[in-house]
Amino acid sequence: MASGKRKGLSFDDKKTRLLELFNETCDFYTLKELEKIAPKLKGIITQSVKDVLQSLVDDDLVNSDKCGVQTIYWCLPSEAVAKRQRRLDALQQQLAEKRQKLTALQRQLVQVQAGREDSVERTAVLERLAACEAAWRERQRTLESYLECDPDVLAQRETETKTLIEQANRWTDNLYVIRSYVQRNLGVDLDLFDQQFELKPALQYLE
Rank of each mutant, 00 (worst) to 15 (best):
K32I: 10
Q70E: 14
S48I: 04
K36Y: 03
D60C: 07
D27F: 13
L53T: 04
L18D: 05
D59K: 13
L56Y: 04
Y29M: 05
I72P: 08
V69F: 12
S48L: 01
T25Q: 03
E33N: 03
E33S: 00
L53G: 00
Y29W: 14
V62W: 04
C75E: 09
E24C: 04
L41Q: 10
N23K: 15
L56E: 07
C75P: 06
V52L: 09
T30Q: 03
K32V: 15
I72G: 01
T46A: 08
Y73K: 05
K66M: 07
T71V: 15
V52G: 02
E24Q: 11
L31D: 08
D51I: 08
L61W: 02
I72V: 15
T16G: 04
D59L: 14
E24F: 13
L34D: 01
R17L: 14
L56H: 06
F28K: 11
F22Q: 01
S64T: 12
K36L: 05
C26R: 12
V57R: 01
F28G: 00
A38M: 05
K40M: 03
N63I: 05
T71Y: 13
T30V: 05
L41R: 11
T25A: 07
C75I: 10
E33F: 03
C26I: 10
T16H: 10
D59F: 07
D51L: 13
N63W: 15
D65S: 15
G68E: 12
I45M: 06
C67W: 14
W74Q: 00
T16Q: 12
C75M: 14
E35D: 07
K40P: 00
T46E: 10
T25R: 14
F22M: 01
Q47A: 12
S48R: 06
C67E: 09
L41C: 00
V52M: 09
T16K: 12
K36P: 01
E24W: 14
S64F: 13
I45P: 13
L34W: 06
F22P: 02
W74I: 12
L61Q: 14
L18E: 03
D65K: 10
D59M: 10
K36D: 13
G68M: 09
T25F: 09
L53Y: 07
P39W: 05
C26M: 09
E20L: 12
T71S: 03
V49Y: 08
F28V: 15
K40G: 01
C75H: 06
T16P: 00
K32P: 01
I44D: 01
V57M: 06
S64C: 13
